[in-house]
Nucleic acid binder design. Structure first.
Lengths: 247, 247
DNA sequence: TGTACATCAGTGAACGCGCGTTCACTGATGTAC
DNA sequence: TGTACATCAGTGAACGCGCGTTCACTGATGTAC
């Protein structure tokens, strides 16, 4: 408890001697730790750190699976800079997290679109899209968690932007359902209703697998084929009692 | 910054004068705040506080929608006791949270069972169970979130118990699917496969509504009837191409 | 070609806060003699 | 019927920690004269 444990180390001569130029950092309680400090960016090259911060945040999110793990200090430590440096590139923590999520969201939409384009008939397109959606979620569980399973971060404007982008993704799904109807493969159901159902169904598969990873799930593509397959066939089957039908 | 703001108030004579016996509490920075302090339990009546703690935790969870809101200090404040008092009744925070969730879980199973029993034919039972499951989730979104949407709390034994209880709930669903097969309403599908699908489907509906409350969802029962209805009809429809079928 | 200077890209130290948990204690209440 | 005493049901104060953010500064780098 004597002060000698703190202040003197803080002004250790090691940093001023010509022999040791090892980058040191004090941790929360004054102990010196060696931290690989990155090289300072060149003059017009300031955005390099911005990119490195995003990558580090991305890594921490994926690695530890909770945005709690993405603390300003943790990101700074991984990048090899100091916490205040992050504020040179992002307004606050929320904006940093937002940008990480927005990136992944665009990747999700792109992955789905790519899978859809590789199929030709409307039914296969719908199935392929659902599989790609689910596969993306399983490959990026923590990002999926933040985007679709977490309580929405209540802060401003930006997240509206993300939601608009989400709507864009949904619109694609809606169009694929339209095509299904045009092809006469949907009974007389409302394409939007079907699109929502397909989303809910796909989300159900992927989010439950993410939330309960140790449950004894079947092969994910088999699961999707069973569930989507039966649902889509059911859209064309006549309603037995006339009661089990949407309004 | 003078000490006069802290220590003197701490030993304020107000507490010893005969006129003021108002229960006071210092907040984190020494300011005195009036806190309605509960009456101390009578001699053999110690478990009363335990019950009150559970209720307070339950309330905070439901009110603020995140287990972050259920801090030991917040619970104590709501109950009207001090933080250490909680440790007289619960080993640690994890155990407190566990017990809150376990209660709700049993309620969920009970609600589903009740709904199922009020129907007679296997198909209606399955539909009613799904609706009840979803309704319960929407009525208790934060508990549902913790049970089925959150990263599993990695701590010990206890949560295994909850999972066993979860399995019990799933077994009921599995039996209802068995009955559906016995009634010849399931094609030649595996009842367990169907049970999993029904769970995924129901979870998809409820969890997406919880995660995206401001989306323009349809009436939840209509949604469930559409989705479950089409899926269940699809189980009896022949497979068009022979490709869209589980192995 | 040399030097003053603005600017860029950061650093170091601290602020105030809330958290889970521990430890020594206290005061009312029931019980034994 | 009265009194010592164990116990129950807590309290008060503190520990060590990590967090987001701010503020004053610094040192290398490019630019103007």
């Amino acid at each position: 408890m004597s002060m000698t444990q703190y202040a003197p180390i803080e002004h250790s001569t090691a940093q001023h001697s010509s022999a040791t130029v090892v980058p040191l950092r004090k941790d929360a309680y004054g102990r010196l730790v060696a931290v690989p400090r990155r090289e300072r960016a060149r003059r017009g090259d300031g955005d390099r750190l911005r990119e490195e911060i995003l990558e580090a945040a991305e890594y921490l999110l994926a690695r530890y699976g909770h945005d709690d793990a993405v603390s300003i200090r943790a990101v700074a430590n991984r990048v090899g800079c100091t916490p205040p440096a992050i504020y040179l590139h992002f307004e606050d923590k929320t904006q940093l997290l937002f940008e990480v999520c927005a990136r992944r969201f665009n990747e999700l939409t792109a992955a789905v679109d790519l899978a859809v384009e590789s199929e030709s008939d409307p039914l296969s397109k719908l199935m392929a899209g659902s599989k790609a959606y689910i596969a993306f979620g399983l490959a990026n569980p923590e990002h999926y968690r933040i985007l679709f399973m977490q309580k929405p971060i209540l802060t401003p404007e930006q997240w509206r932007g993300l939601r608009a982008s989400s709507t864009a993704g949904f619109n694609g799904l809606e169009q694929r359902c339209q095509a299904l109807q045009t092809a006469g493969l949907m009974g007389n159901h409302n394409p939007t209703t079907v699109a929502i159902a397909v989303w809910q169904l796909s989300h159900g598969v992927v989010s439950l697998m993410i939330a309960k990873p140790s449950w004894g799930w079947n092969e994910v593509d088999d699961t999707t084929e069973h569930l989507m397959g039966a649902y889509l066939r059911g859209l064309n089957a006549e309603v037995p009692s006339g009661r089990v039908q949407e309004p």
